[in-house]
């Protein structure tokens, strides 16, 4: 079950995505995590096609986090493409790092994707708690 749900980090910056990946995978060791970051030419940016292609075909559900601005639009376009190929997608409305870590840990301990989303989105209010 676990390997059919994965986390996708969508960022303008490849370094931000890689760093977040590093941080999360140190704790959520068994959760598949992929990144889609940068403009494809070494610069900052996000691309819908690259986001779609970053999701392996064996994933049944992808929990997607994005960093800012137009990453949301590209994530939404990619979500439509992924839905068309039969993969479930949830775009998580949460801070990039905290949301990703919380979602990954929820999946790591065996919670469902919707529980993971709910917990990740709760990080919007809980950073200083």
């Amino acid at each position: 079950m676990k390997d059919k749900v994965g986390l996708l980090l969508v960022s303008h910056s490849e370094r931000l995505a890689l760093g977040t990946h590093e941080l999360i995978s140190a704790m959520a060791r068994d959760v598949p995590i992929r990144i889609a970051a940068g403009d494809g030419e070494g610069g900052l940016g996000t691309r819908a096609e690259a986001i779609e292609e970053a999701v392996p075909s064996e994933w049944e559900h992808v929990l997607l986090l994005f960093d800012m601005g137009s990453a949301r639009m590209n994530a939404e376009m990619a979500a439509e493409m992924l839905t068309a190929r039969g993969c479930g997608v949830t775009i998580i409305d949460a801070p990039f790092v905290e949301g990703a870590l919380t979602a990954a840990m929820a999946i790591q301990v065996g919670k469902t994707p919707s529980e993971a989303v709910k917990e990740a989105e709760a990080t919007r209010r809980s950073k200083m708690n």
Binding site: E49, S70, M77
Partner: peptide, 15 residues
């Protein structure tokens, strides 16, 4: 445009 243009203009013009 969707595949080549980063930023907001790719998805906006693409749509």
């Amino acid at each position: 445009l969707i595949s080549k243009v980063g930023g907001a203009s790719g998805p906006l013009y693409g749509t």
